[in-house]
Design a protein around this nucleic acid. Structure first.
Lengths: 348, 348
DNA sequence: CCGCGTGATGTTAGCGATCACTATTTCGCC
DNA sequence: GGCGAAATAGTGATCGCTAACATCACGCGG
């Protein structure tokens, strides 16, 4: 079936079927205003020529977009990767195409850079970027084409309810739950190794993992220890966490994600502290590897793939202006207790 | 700067600058046949209107494609994710757009399904799919638009040299190196937990990890143990590897990737076998987490990101039909010895 | 002083679809 | 039997851009 020739267009089909190009268009788009006999003729011609509509032409002509652009900060983070997977799956099932564009925070992003990277007006976009250039991009998008964008992130239930273009889960709440769990185990306090935040400062928002952690400690009347900031890489976390694991007073650490938790686990091991005997470690995200570390990581499961799928659904409804449905739902974050957490050792 | 209006077109710019739309096109595309004064006027108008060319219209009109479609089997595998990252980076630096489309092997793929998922004729495509539907898609692409496609995979140097559209590294060679290393350590033989192959059968090709492993054993005059097939997930590997780690005769295991190695590590631990004392484990890919497991994984580093970047470069040259350059190069796979490998215990 | 090459620009025709009309049947119903 | 609505099909404009060709002014050689 080698056929390096040009692809068939709607006109070729029309000619073969003996109808007008518009009729072919109607058949392809499932218009009801076509006689059955005509439809069959056209369908036959389509099959014979192997005709497939040209997406470019279709959206140029003002038809449905059938294409999403995903703007993300880093595809190597588990959350982003999983959400992207969810988006892609949902898009594929409806035969939409997916474009990805990475807003690399490493490249210094002037406003002009950001604008250049942004999809054109009207192009449906899902943005998941929580760093500084990401926030600026989001704002620009919001100003320019609010109806054709959806943002994924960590937000409180109220924030989620207030903005029809926001999708995500409340990480703060999940972190709070994990912190409460550690406290209930008998730990005096819980330390926190944090992932970078959108603003570069910690404690600003309400839905950040670090915020949920601090809130619970305050509510429990415990002193809130200094938070340990880490970068995204495991190596950075490993370095940042050294003083913590060396301190025998520290008995419980909540980590911003499973990669940081892995680094902490190793650092603790090298520092001669047993886990969970001397030290409890709790991760975040339930990354696939987390169940298979030794000891297996206690962590918080987050269904990013469902969030991605939900973001796509929401976007689709917003774009076509259909009845504003309730936002799609997905499983809440859930603490998964495995082997790295336990009660503190009774000290003499 | 809120401006929910329609984006400026080439005509708007032309009107504002007092020139024809074609002149604007010339300026935008950097044609030399424009007077400096005119160019400045146009540039000014572009800046004022915030004009950005419409990709769709551009490629519809037969201009340069400036867009790649990446066909992949699974974005959650580290290799695919890293290669995709490389492609995206390279594409972004040239301002190309990147589309992804996942060929899910779970969905039963009829030929029609595959064709439907394929990019349209002429659309530059990079394919990284080694399973059955992936191979069929590759073949179709090759028949249809050989000049606009590049495939990423594991191939021998000869295969790579023979097909101008092939890009990748020789995993077989890398696996051979790792196997030799374990043999040199004094192990009688090396067992292998294998990732799935394109054909579903093992031992067919020459560049598969399993092939390199078997080759070295044969060359060394050792018996080649039964290979242990595993799926892609850690959980599958964990299950598959149980009999191996339980067998005290087994002293060295080469794993198809770091995820399988992690599963093996845990299984060994639970079976009460010490690593690397009783059992050496070597992974593959140098996944970010591999340096931070306990003990840290000995593995083979693979620079997938560079391969992705190289695939993009090659594709670009093939598409624009420019002088066929030599294929881009990148670092060879390299064994990284960490803590999970060592000499076998001397048995009484 | 004509003719012609050359550089700068304009004009026209698509690319492959959709949209908004218009034209032709067909059919129900009084 | 005639009239208008509904069903069906076709025509032309348009989306934003590029390719190919046409035009125009200028300058130079014969």
């Amino acid at each position: 079936m080698a056929q390096p020739k040009k692809a068939a267009s709607i006109w070729d089909v029309a000619r073969l079927a003996g109808v007008s190009h518009q009729t072919v268009s109607r058949v392809v788009n499932g218009s009801p205003r076509v006689a059955a006999a005509t439809r069959d003729k056209v369908l036959e011609a389509i099959a014979e020529l192997g005709y497939r509509p040209n997406r470019l032409a279709r959206s140029l002509a003002g038809g449905a977009a059938e294409s999403v652009t995903v703007l993300t900060a880093d595809t190597s983070l588990y959350g982003a990767e999983a959400a992207l997977r969810g988006i892609e799956r949902a898009a594929r099932s409806l035969d939409w195409s997916v474009q990805i564009s990475v807003l690399d925070p490493a490249e210094t992003h002037s406003d002009a850079d950001i604008i250049a990277r942004l999809p054109r007006a009207g192009e449906p976009t899902i943005i998941m970027a929580h760093d500084e250039p990401g926030m600026r991009a989001k704002q620009t998008l919001l100003d320019t084409q609010p109806h054709a964008m959806v943002a994924i992130g960590s937000y409180t239930a109220e924030e989620l309810a207030a903005s029809p273009w926001l999708v995500g889960m409340d990480d703060g709440k999940a972190a709070a739950e994990a912190t409460r769990y550690l406290l209930a185990l008998g730990h005096d306090t819980v330390h926190h190794v944090a992932i970078p935040t959108s603003t570069g400062t910690f404690g600003g928002g309400r839905a950040h993992r670090a915020d949920g952690w601090a809130r619970v400690l305050r509510e429990a009347g415990r002193e809130v220890p200094n938070l340990v900031p880490s970068g995204w890489t495991i190596a950075e976390a490993f370095k940042a966490v050294q003083p913590l694991v060396a301190d025998p007073e520290v008995t419980a650490i909540l980590c911003g994600n499973d990669h940081l938790a892995l680094a902490t686990l190793r650092a603790a091991h090298l520092a001669g502290r047993s886990v969970p005997g001397d030290l409890s470690i709790v991760g975040f995200d339930n990354t696939p590897f987390s169940a298979f570390t030794t000891p297996a990581l206690t962590t918080v499961n987050q269904d990013f793939e469902s969030v991605g799928r939900g973001a796509f659904e929401l976007l689709r409804h917003r774009v076509d202006g259909s009845i504003p449905r309730p936002k799609p739902g997905w499983p809440e974050p859930e603490l998964i207790v495995r082997e790295t957490s336990g009660p503190p050792q009774v000290r003499p």
